[in-house]
Design a binder for these strands. Structure first.
Lengths: 129, 129
DNA sequence: TCCTTAATAGGATTTATTCTTAATAAGATG
DNA sequence: CATCTTATTAAGAATAAATCCTATTAAGGA
C-alpha cells in the first residue's frame, strides 16, 4: 500500500509552487523548510510521481531534468538566455504559437512518446515510463 | 580558423550513419575503426557541431543526450520500450501524426526554444545555444 | 498498543560530461 | 619545401546529476 508521508507532501507542494524545478532546485527549496529531508528522497519521490503519472519528467537541452505537476496538455517556451520555462496551454499554442508571450521562437522540438510497431507485438512486460 | 581534421570527419560520418546516436554510442562506433580517437574529442566535436548548427542536440527523457545531423524540420517518435527513435518529416506529421509508422502515441512533448521577452531587450552578449 | 513493511536518511557509488595540459598536426607563410 | 603558429587532440583527472545501499524510522492496519 502506498503511504502518505510528510516528505511526499512537501515535495508535491514544492513542485506546484516552483513550476518546473529541477530535482536539485526542489531539494534546496524543501530542505530550507525541513532540514531533515534527504536528497535521495527528493529524487526518488519525484521519479515515483513521474512513474505514477502524478507529474511529468521534462528533459530540456542544457539543463538538468525538470518536473512538472501540470498534467493538462501544454507546450513549453524555453529561453536559451535565462533558461526560464513558460507554459503555453494547447489552445493558445495552436492559435498564436506563443506570440502572446512575445517569445522569439528559434527552434521547435517535438517528441512523441509511446510504443513502436515492433514493441506493440512484444510479449514483454509493460515497464511503464 | 577552423581546421579540417580526421577526427571531425569520422565523427560526422558516424553521425550520419547512426541516425540519433548518443555521444557514447558514437564514440564506440568510431573507436572501433580508429582506436586513436579519444572520448573527449567525440564529446567536444559533437558539441561544436551543435553550436555551429551543423547538428542538433536532442534530449530525450531517460536517455543520454543524442545528436542528429538531419537539420530539416522533423519530429521524433520515441519508443519507451526499446528506446529507438524514428523520424517523421513535418508534412507527414501534420497529416497523420505518425500513423504510417504504426506508432502508438501516448504522450506528445513540445518544446519551443528561443529568447523570452525579457531577454530580447537585454544587452548581454548572445551566447548561442 | 503492537506489528508489518513501506519509506526515509545518509552517504557511497556510478556514470555522462566537462576540464586540464602537454603533445600533435593543419595549413598559412616565407 | 621548410618553418611556424596555434587550433586541435589524447589521456586521464575532475565534476555533478542521479542512483544505489542499508540500517533506521514511522505509517497505518490489526
Amino acid at each position: 500500500m502506498e503511504r502518505r508521508t510528510r516528505q511526499k507532501e512537501s515535495v508535491y507542494r514544492a513542485l506546484v509552487a516552483l513550476g518546473h524545478p529541477s530535482a536539485t532546485e526542489l531539494y534546496e527549496y524543501v530542505h530550507a523548510q525541513d532540514a531533515e529531508i534527504s536528497r535521495s528522497t527528493v529524487f526518488r519521490v519525484l521519479s515515483d510521481f513521474a512513474s505514477a503519472g502524478r507529474a511529468r519528467r521534462l528533459c530540456f537541452t542544457g539543463s538538468d531534468d525538470r518536473f512538472d505537476a501540470t498534467l493538462a496538455p501544454h507546450a513549453h517556451l524555453h529561453c536559451r538566455k535565462c533558461g526560464r520555462i513558460f507554459d503555453i496551454p494547447m489552445p493558445d499554442m495552436r492559435s498564436d504559437g506563443g506570440r502572446a508571450e512575445r517569445f522569439l521562437i528559434e527552434q521547435c522540438y517535438v517528441e512523441f512518446r509511446g510504443v513502436c510497431a515492433a514493441c506493440q507485438g512484444a510479449d514483454g512486460a509493460d515497464e511503464g515510463f
